[in-house]
Design a protein around this nucleic acid. Structure first.
Length: 400
DNA sequence: AAGAGCATCAACCGCATGCGT
DNA sequence: CACGCATGCGGTTGATGCTCT
């Protein structure tokens, strides 16, 4: 049905392969300030030698604040199995039922773990029969009924509970059903600067501990705590992670009343869906609430930036990042300074090889540091490292 | 200790879909 | 209605790390 085809990304001069920390930072900084209204234009505007697709994917699968990392819980796995029975390889739909999980991640887990597990169970029918066997076409093969046009009955089965429209609409509501760790919010309310002064060791311990349980990637910017929180739901979108709100202003996280979703079982989930759809108005309200949450998230990010050690405040000194004026121009200046600052900091620790590195290094000397930035940091404290050590996960940084 | 094989997962690719003109 | 474009989605690949021999 699609008319015309997206012109292939300009391949010439565009970088492929694993993302570097510098690229991650650039992307995060850009989206932080500008959002991602246009993925295609984004890399150019952000100074990234990547195609928009690549940026989008990186953001969605890794940098997105509410992405949950770490091993899947048994409950999550069970949910995936059940949903796969019903939906087949509709990874994005499945992902929409698992807050913080991406379709890519779920797809990988399915292909590497769950599928094999089910196959082995099938080969041992005494321990596993009935349900799985009746839907084996979808559960033990990556080629599902959805792919093959078979199993329409399954689709109908799903549709008796949720038609596709319902499903999409429900996703909005669902986005806020994410367990929040209260202490995280407490930490936020205390203010990151205060934390730095009073709870630094404790917090660091927490991060360190959490970090150990994390999955790691070959090119991770930072490992992150296995978190069950996602303060900024991506509910402004019709899918689980498709877009993110542009920062402006918002209400505090404390207003959020978040019933934990996780996996109460598929039936429960679908029941909830059904009930939810009875009231479009409430969905609209939820959407509004979620929007506030998203906005707040960015505000929190800005607040977080004062988490830099007192000697390592950002480019705007101890005021800049907190100063939110209504005027566009100062914001733009802030944005540029912020990005420049990030680039500078990356120049302190990132290894060479990245062509952006030369850029950042070249600007290193020319950029006026913040009033508190005395230049000794390079030796004594690396502000970026310090910052991310305190916030071991990039998602965590944003989701705090 | 070294190499082979396997497992995992981030990232890419191409097609599908939706929307604006 | 036709077209072009941007984004979403699912399959696949390749790099990396781990385990086994």
């Amino acid at each position: 049905m699609g008319r015309g085809r997206a012109p292939c990304c300009e391949k010439v001069g565009l970088k492929k392969g694993p993302w570097t920390p510098a690229e991650d930072m650039r992307l995060m900084a850009y989206i932080h300030k500008h959002g991602h209204g246009n993925w295609r234009a984004l890399p150019k505007q952000a100074g990234l030698l990547r195609c928009g697709k690549s940026c989008r994917l990186r953001w969605i699968n890794y940098l997105r604040p509410d992405v949950k990392r770490g091993n899947f819980t048994p409950e999550e796995e069970e949910t995936i199995i059940k949903l796969h029975e019903l939906l087949g390889n509709k990874w994005s739909k499945i992902a929409s039922r698992l807050p913080g999980r991406t379709d890519n991640e779920i797809k990988n887990v399915w292909n590497t773990h769950l599928k094999k597990r089910l196959v082995s169970k099938e080969s041992n029918p005494t321990s596993h029969k009935s349900k799985e066997s009746s839907s084996s076409s979808s559960s033990n093969s990556s080629v599902s009924y959805c792919d093959q046009g078979e199993g329409i009955g399954h689709e109908e089965q799903v549709n008796t509970v949720i038609n596709s429209k319902e499903c999409d609409a429900v996703l909005m509501e669902e986005r806020i059903e994410i367990a929040i760790e209260p202490d995280i919010w407490d930490m936020l309310e205390d203010g990151p600067c205060q934390l730095q002064e009073t709870n630094d060791n404790e917090l660091k311990d927490k991060w360190d501990t959490d970090s150990r349980s994390l999955s790691k990637g070959p090119n991770l910017l930072i490992d992150g705590p296995k978190q069950s929180l996602s303060p900024s739901s991506s509910s402004s979108t019709s899918n689980s992670y498709g877009s993110y709100s542009i920062p402006t202003d918002g209400k505090g996280p404390a207003e959020q009343t978040v019933p934990p979703l996780e996996t109460g079982g598929l039936v429960d989930v679908l029941d909830i869906e059904h009930q939810e759809m009875k009231n479009d108005q409430s969905n609209l309200e939820t959407a509004t609430t979620s929007l506030h949450l998203n906005l707040d998230f960015w505000g929190m990010l800005d607040d977080e930036l004062c988490f830099f050690p007192s000697t390592t405040v950002g480019p705007m000194g101890d005021q800049g990042l907190h100063q939110h004026t209504s005027e566009e121009e100062p914001k733009e200046i802030d944005s540029k300074m912020w990005i420049s600052y990030l680039e500078n900091e990356l120049g302190l620790w990132a290894t060479g090889g990245d062509d952006q590195q030369s850029q950042t290094n070249s600007t290193l000397g020319s950029l006026a540091p913040c009033p508190h930035y005395d230049g000794k940091l390079e030796v004594e404290i690396d502000p970026v490292i310090t910052y991310f050590q305190s916030h071991p996960s990039s998602p965590a940084i944003f989701s705090l």
